[in-house]
């Protein structure tokens, strides 16, 4: 089965509620005065986080998302991963998706590293047998063998990044979506991670990676997508873009 990621005219609006807008009292008052209060104040702010994003990724594509803080990289990753549904436009993804976006999110700090790997596998809709067969490989790649029995709350950010990246890439997937936290790993691990991403690409998989590290983007990816204020300002091969 061929895999692809296809976004057409994707826009996403966030509604940001102030403390006042979240209270029922104000919602009721607003109802009686016809919503004037909220419209005229900054209680309900609508932020257009993504605006008219369109692109298509085919097998073997590795897309790096670049842009300032708040330019919409993580939001776009979440739209591709299906966590956010676009306000308008369509998202079509074919293939098994594996996303690791927020470092530490969805992990249980009290449970051991091993149990957390099992939980992550479970969330990816794998069976216990599939998960257990990969545990040793994950332990080895992450270099965390000695620590896997410890509760996750004793892990550093770098160790958590190792655990999450190893888990995300060990289970078979066609579309891999990663956020920039990879930088939390040390140099040795980042090098291993880059090798693994290149290997994934050799297996004709799609990788979407958000990063601030232009060097990393150029060494791993064959496409760049530069975002600014939720709009695409550059989309194409890394060679064609000069900041």
């Amino acid at each position: 089965m061929s895999c692809f990621v296809d976004l057409r005219n994707v826009s996403l609006d966030y509604n940001i509620y102030s403390v006042r807008a979240q209270s029922l009292r104000n919602a009721l008052v607003n109802m009686t005065v016809g919503g004037v209060l909220m419209r005229n104040s900054r209680d309900l702010t609508v932020v257009r986080a993504l605006s008219n994003i369109s692109f298509r990724l085919e097998e073997g594509d590795r897309l790096a998302l670049l842009g300032h803080n708040g330019s919409g990289k993580t939001t776009l990753l979440k739209v591709i991963a299906g966590i956010y549904e676009p306000t308008t436009g369509t998202v079509d993804v074919s293939g098994r998706m594996s996303s690791t976006i927020d470092l530490g999110h969805g992990l249980d700090p009290e449970a051991s590293g091993r149990q957390n790997i099992r939980n992550l596998g479970l969330m990816r809709r794998l069976t216990m047998a599939q998960i257990n067969s990969r545990l040793a490989a994950i332990a080895e790649f992450s270099g965390l063998e000695a620590y896997l029995e410890f509760p996750l709350k004793t892990y550093s950010a770098g160790m958590t990044a190792r655990l999450m990246f190893s888990t995300a890439t060990e289970f078979p997937s066609d579309v891999l979506v990663l956020d920039e936290w990879l930088g939390a790993g040390d140099a040795a691990f980042v090098k291993k991670a880059i090798d693994r991403m290149n290997a994934l690409v050799a297996a004709a998989k799609i990788v979407v990676l958000a990063t601030h590290d232009t060097g990393l983007a150029r060494s791993v990816c064959n496409k760049l997508c530069v975002l600014d204020a939720g709009k695409i300002v550059y989309l194409g091969p890394p060679a064609g873009w000069a900041p």
Partner: peptide, 8 residues
């Protein structure tokens, strides 16, 4: 909320 930000 943390699970919702993580998985579809």
């Amino acid at each position: 909320s943390s699970m919702m930000q993580m998985h579809r």
